[in-house]
Simulated assay, not measured.
Amino acid sequence: MTNLPWWGWAVLLIGVIIIAVLAFIAGRMLSRLQSQTQRRDEAIGKRNERLHESIVTIAKAMDQGQCPLSEGALRLVVLLDLPVEPEKVDYAERYSGLHTMYERIKHMPTHEARKQYPKAEIRKMDDEREGYEKELEDVILSDVRQLLKDFS
């Protein structure tokens, strides 16, 4: 190895420098990736925490009769699908009453969209929705109480 000409040593030195620079760049990229992953995980955790609080608040309001069962079911089913979880839970199966109500009324307009319908049509939809609430009241309240246990 001592018999290498000067240009051989130069090539060897350049190769070592290139490897060192590439190792440094790879280390910085790995560090950035870890930092980015940590920030993403923290953001997901905060988002899931806010969703959790909203779910519990709506469920408590439903349980206390402060929120109509149909409105609460619409909101809860949507919120339960939003959390980012390592293992996706089948909330449709776990809280089947909420999902049954959601499936029956999800086509009904809400808020501003309701105003586009004639009053007779709105009354008909309200009667239908209230009928579903009476029919599913026991199973929905059971789901709400189970949800409160699961999320507490």
Rank of each mutant, 00 (worst) to 15 (best):
L79Y: 12
A20R: 04
I140D: 01
N48F: 04
W7K: 07
L74I: 12
K60A: 01
S35C: 09
I44T: 07
V89T: 15
E103F: 08
A73D: 08
P5N: 13
I14Y: 06
A120I: 03
A73F: 03
G45Q: 10
Y132F: 01
R123C: 05
M108E: 08
I14L: 04
G131Q: 05
A23P: 05
S35N: 10
R50E: 09
E49C: 05
M108A: 14
K60D: 01
T100M: 15
D143E: 07
K134I: 10
H52R: 05
R104M: 13
R32P: 10
V21R: 05
L141E: 02
S54I: 08
V89I: 08
L33T: 11
G65F: 01
N48L: 10
A20N: 04
L147K: 01
Q38G: 05
D138L: 08
L82R: 14
I19W: 06
S31K: 13
T110E: 04
T2S: 12
I17F: 09
S70K: 06
R50A: 12
I55K: 03
L13D: 15
Q66M: 11
L148F: 00
Y132R: 00
G97I: 00
P68V: 03
Q38C: 06
I18A: 14
K106I: 12
G45W: 07
P118H: 02
S70T: 03
K88H: 03
R94C: 07
E49V: 05
C67G: 06
E49R: 12
R40A: 10
